[in-house]
């Protein structure tokens, strides 16, 4: 993890030069093949993973987003 990546990903202002590079839905994983797994954290800071989530139910709906 580099400071540059942290700064670019967590951009400080909503200007096209800063948010447009992250609009990469066309490069996202295809349907039908196993998705990549990542660690995630609960609100109390406990680590879990995306695979722990998707394996818990027949289907899992994952909405990505933020407060803002």
């Amino acid at each position: 993890m580099t400071d540059d990546l942290l700064t670019r990903y967590n951009y400080d202002e909503f200007v096209p030069a800063k948010f447009e590079p992250w609009m990469r839905f066309d490069q996202s994983p295809p349907l039908g093949s196993k998705g990549p797994d990542f660690p995630l954290w609960t609100l109390d800071g406990t680590e879990t993973s995306l695979s722990a989530i998707w394996s818990a139910n027949s289907y899992t709906v994952v909405e990505f987003g933020s407060f803002t």
Partner: peptide
């Protein structure tokens, strides 16, 4: 919560408010 560098979010296309549905095997 994703990591601070958004590893999961970035891997899935990093759109601000997208939705994915996975089956139990982890296939989108």
């Amino acid at each position: 919560v994703d990591s601070l560098d958004g590893a999961c979010h970035r891997a899935y296309g990093s759109m601000p408010n997208m939705t994915w549905i996975f089956n139990q095997a982890g296939t989108p």
